[in-house]
């Protein structure tokens, strides 16, 4: 029997439970994120995974793209999350005739002073909800490239820096829906996660109906209060940055992302930005789950949200009805878990 040899403890063992606790104090992080969960949970029924991933993105300083058919509370969830944060919030409804200046802002000539003044657009906020992002054409989408990646807007040679935090929460309907455009790959790559919002379960739907039947449907947003300030969020993010990642887990992340570049069903694999996103996301998720180190479980859990919008299927696989999630699952299955 393997575990009977060779070691036989001679001294009475100390209680190991005390030793196996996080070495950094995650109590504050747990309390704050639980408060956010509680606030949103007053309105949103179910969607626990979605909520966990939204909080993960918030802690990892990443933007989130929410995709789902109309009516599954994408916009409501994003608005609720924004409401729990005590930071400036703005909402942009993307339409086919939206211009880049409508998003970023524009320079106005001041006759009295004889110069131009920059008027910031709605993107100048800490939490920006872009509703129906794929209803605007590529010209408008490209206006977001700089601000999403570099957190600056350059107008007339002047770079205007965004406030911290700066989070873009975008919603979109599947591209098969009428009147939508496919987002450029460069923009998709700037989203930390793409989250698929699915239908509720039967029990959850009954709960939703009971809530509305009891007069819940009026102004649900009023129930939600801001419980996380910008300095608090900055402190939590700093803690996330100190998470431990063992060398084998780093290699595991690199192998998974590397496999996307060699998979026969893909003609566009994920970039190194995806590896960094997977790493940052896993660190935040581990902290949310009360650990000060990352495990392969965290990496596997985040593989699909991080990679599904960064890879492109070959036309053959698309015609066969294959999905990006299936390919990501195959890739994760093909890489040995470090242990």
């Amino acid at each position: 029997m393997e575990n009977e040899t060779p070691f036989h403890p001679t001294a009475p063992p100390e209680t190991p439970v005390a030793a196996f606790t996080p070495r950094t104090d995650l109590a504050q992080l747990t309390a704050r994120t639980e408060a956010v969960r509680h606030q949103i949970g007053q309105v949103i029924v179910g969607q626990q995974d979605l909520l966990e991933l939204l909080l993960t993105a918030l802690l990892a300083d990443g933007h989130v793209l929410l995709e789902g058919v109309p009516g599954v509370a994408k916009t409501l969830t994003a608005k609720l999350l924004a409401r729990t944060l005590d930071v400036p919030f703005s909402r942009i409804q993307f339409t086919p005739d939206l211009m880049p200046a409508d998003v970023l802002g524009t320079s106005i000539f001041r006759p009295a002073q004889g110069d131009f003044e920059f008027r910031p657009g709605p993107v100048f906020a800490s939490v920006v909800l872009i509703d129906e992002i794929n209803r605007a054409p590529a010209k408008t989408q490209s206006a977001l490239f700089e601000v999403m990646e570099e957190r600056t807007v350059t107008q007339d040679g002047t770079a205007h820096r965004m406030a911290t935090p700066f989070v873009v929460l975008a919603t979109q309907n599947p591209v098969e829906q009428e009147g939508t455009y496919r987002l450029p790959e460069a923009q998709l790559d700037r989203f930390l996660f793409k989250l698929n919002v699915g239908y509720p379960t039967l029990a959850e739907e009954i709960q939703i109906l009971q809530g509305h039947h009891g007069g819940f449907g009026g102004t649900p947003l009023d129930k939600v209060q801001a419980v996380l300030s910008a300095p608090d969020l900055a402190a939590l993010r700093q803690q996330v940055g100190q998470q431990r990642v063992e060398a084998n887990v780093l290699e595991y992340i690199a192998k998974i992302v590397g496999q996307t570049r060699a998979h026969k069903a893909l003609y566009l694999g994920a970039s190194p930005r995806a590896s960094i996103a997977l790493l940052n996301g896993a660190k935040a998720l581990a902290a949310l789950r009360g650990r000060d180190f990352v495990t392969p479980e965290d990496v596997q859990f985040l593989a699909a949200p991080v990679l599904r919008h960064r890879i492109m299927l070959t036309p053959e696989r698309e015609m066969e009805g294959g999905t990006a999630d299936e390919v990501v699952a195959q890739i994760v299955q093909s890489v040995e878990v470090p242990r």
């Binding site: 009977e4 063992p13 431990r244 063992e246 887990v249």
Partner: peptide, 29 residues
Amino acid sequence: QFEYVWYGELAITPTLYAAVRAEQFALGR
């Protein structure tokens, strides 16, 4: 315990190791 030691790189003393092995030993038995 394994995850704290392996992925978390927890510094493990001989005493702590004895406790961990005792738990593994008990489950193995």
